[in-house]
Design a protein around this nucleic acid. Sequence first.
DNA 1: TAGGTGACGGTCC
DNA 2: AGGACCGCCACCT
Length: 110
Amino acid sequence: MVYDPQEYVEAVLALVESIPPGRVMSYGAIADALHDRFERGSARRVGTIMAQWGGGVPWHRVVSGGGRLPPGHELRARALLAAEGVVFRGSRVRMAEYAWHPGDTDAGGG
DNA sequence: TAGGTGACGGTCC
DNA sequence: AGGACCGCCACCT
């Protein structure tokens, strides 16, 4: 299996773009989902990728495992998510309701 | 080849 | 609810 870092980056970005509005995915969930097709990858790597090339995708739908928003973009992400109907639990997203993974329905927890 | 770095994740207080 | 600590891992220098 030939592994190219650039290819992994594209896969991450593609997966982020597939996240339905009003739904979120954690860095770890993304890494785990891609772990099926890439032997390399981790939540850390996904975070680094988002920091560098996340500008062209719905980055606000990617949050930490605990539903926390990306450092430096908390206000921005919060506003964007709120506009999509995401309800916050303090300063965190309620992962139990909004967590999404490939293959799941696009309907939210409601 | 070795060392530093970071949009993480879970635990402990 | 908030903050500090350690473990993890691939990428870059």
